[in-house]
Each structure stands twice: as structure tokens, then as C-alpha cells.
């Protein structure tokens, strides 16, 4: 009698539908396959790992004690590293604003200009600063100019992407109001949109500057100026005690610029 009146509830409950379960297994299989493929194809010589820790220890011991007398030599390249980051960022800011307006859906002129803007964004962002350095060293010859242009080339896309997103999310109201006064298109961008995206532009610029200090520390590897050249040279001469000094110096400037950037960003927001 009780069973007759009781509602019948299902006895099985599954969190996922069979389709979801199958998809889950498919993903797992894909990850496993990718792992197996990548590890096997890399042809790793496992024997190398056997004495790796011995070698690493050996390397570390040869770095000690650091040769502090090398420090005066690298002061100028360290300053140069920061110059490269700052000037490159400055150029990038100037170029990124028009690029952002070109690549934002609501401010670009037509489909073609939008596509050009997007293509420039993707190209700038997808090529690493050091690879840009390789290209600009070929053009300008070795030295900080190639480094500055490389930093600018990579940062333009980074800044413009975030600013373009901010433009697309800008409040329509003020734009409409300034349009209604009969202002020209450029004036509408200047007066109604630019102030709205200014905080993003400034914050991102400061953030990118400290990334650029880190990037500039290795531009010397391809001959694009800065401290990297000295690190590379010291390693190639097996001057490990110098290497340690350079590493410490790089750590100091990168961490200092990170702290400065974080401080400035906290102040302005």
C-alpha cells in the first residue's frame, strides 16, 4: 500500500549526460596523445639527466665568489637597458592610440580599415620582442636603436589591443551628446572617447614598461643593445663569476621596475 502511493523516483543519477562523458574522455585522450607525441618526438637523451645535478652544482660553484669589480663596467649597459624600455614604450604609446581607433569596431572607418587594424595588432603581438630585435638589427645594424624599435613594435599591439577593447566598451551617451553638438568625427573621438579610455591607456603603459625592462635585458643576445650583450659575452668566455654579477644586476633592475610600476598603478587607480 505504501509502495503503491509513493511516487517513483529514478534510481540512477548522473552528473553528466552520456554525450558530456564521451566528450570528457575525448579530451583526456587528446591530452594523453599530445603528451606522448611531444615527449617521444623530442628524442630526449635521458642519460643526460643522470649527471645533470652534478653539472649544475659544478656551474654554481664556479660562479662563486661573484667578481664585483665587473660592476662598474655594466653600469652603462644597465642604464641603456632602461632607456631602451622607456623610449620603446614611449614610441609605442604614440602609435597605439591611432591603431586602437582603427582596430575598434565602433570607431574604424569601414570593414577594410578594421581588418587592417586587426592584422597589425595580431602581427605586432604574435612576434616576440627578441624576434623583432633580430629583424631590426638586420635593418639598423647592432645597437640600441634596433632594440628601441623592437620594443616599440611589440608593445604597440599590446597597448592598442587593450585600448581598442576599452573603446568598444566606451559609454555611448557622451559620444552621442558630442555628436549632437555638430562636432567632427575626430573631435568626437578626442573629446568623448579618449578621456574614457585614458585610465586604461596610462595603466597599461606603465605595466608594459616594466615588462619591457625585462625584455630589454635579453635584447643584447641578438645585438639589439643593453645588458644582454654583456651576459652573453661573459657566458661565452666562461667568465662565470662575471655572469653572477650580471644576473644579480638584472634581477635588481627588473624587480625595481616592477615595484615602481606597481606603485604608480596603485597611485593612479
Amino acid at each position: 500500500m505504501e509502495t503503491a502511493t509513493a511516487k517513483r523516483y529514478p534510481e540512477v543519477w548522473r552528473r553528466r549526460t552520456p554525450r558530456e562523458t564521451a566528450l570528457g574522455w575525448l579530451w583526456t585522450a587528446a591530452v594523453a596523445f599530445a603528451a606522448a607525441w611531444s615527449v617521444s618526438a623530442l628524442d630526449i637523451e635521458w642519460a643526460f639527466f643522470a649527471d645533470a645535478h652534478v653539472q649544475a652544482f659544478d656551474l654554481a660553484s664556479r660562479m662563486w665568489p661573484p667578481r664585483w669589480s665587473y660592476l662598474p663596467v655594466i653600469v652603462r649597459p644597465l642604464i641603456e637597458t632602461i632607456h631602451i624600455a622607456t623610449l620603446g614604450t614611449a614610441i609605442a604609446v604614440v602609435l597605439s592610440v591611432p591603431l586602437a581607433f582603427l582596430a575598434a569596431r565602433n570607431t574604424t572607418a569601414n570593414e577594410l580599415t578594421w581588418a587592417i587594424g586587426r592584422a597589425l595588432l595580431v602581427a605586432s603581438r604574435s612576434v616576440n620582442t627578441v624576434i623583432w630585435g633580430l629583424l631590426f638589427v638586420a635593418i639598423f645594424g647592432p645597437g640600441p636603436v634596433a632594440g628601441i624599435v623592437a620594443v616599440a613594435a611589440r608593445s604597440v599591439g599590446f597597448l592598442a589591443k587593450l585600448v581598442a577593447e576599452a573603446i568598444e566598451e566606451a559609454d555611448r551617451g557622451p559620444i552621442e551628446a558630442v555628436e549632437a553638438t555638430g562636432a567632427g568625427t575626430a573631435q568626437v573621438y578626442l573629446v568623448a572617447i579618449l578621456p574614457q579610455v585614458m585610465p586604461i591607456l596610462i595603466g597599461t603603459t606603465v605595466y608594459r614598461w616594466d615588462i619591457n625592462v625585462r625584455e630589454s635585458s635579453v635584447l643584447g643576445f641578438v645585438g639589439a643593445g643593453g645588458i644582454g650583450l654583456y651576459l652573453y659575452a661573459s657566458i661565452n668566455q666562461f667568465a662565470w663569476q662575471q655572469v653572477l654579477v650580471v644576473l644579480v644586476a638584472i634581477l635588481v633592475i627588473v624587480m625595481a621596475s616592477e615595484a615602481l610600476s606597481a606603485y604608480v598603478r596603485a597611485r593612479i587607480s
Binding site: S217, V218, L231, L247, I250, L251
Partner: peptide, 11 residues
């Protein structure tokens, strides 16, 4: 985190 990947790579 502070050292660039390329510096680590060279080691």
C-alpha cells in the same frame, strides 16, 4: 619569474 626565459634557456 624575474629572469627572462632566454636567460634560463642559455643555462
Amino acid at each position: 619569474r624575474t629572469l627572462h626565459e632566454i636567460i634560463i634557456a642559455i643555462f
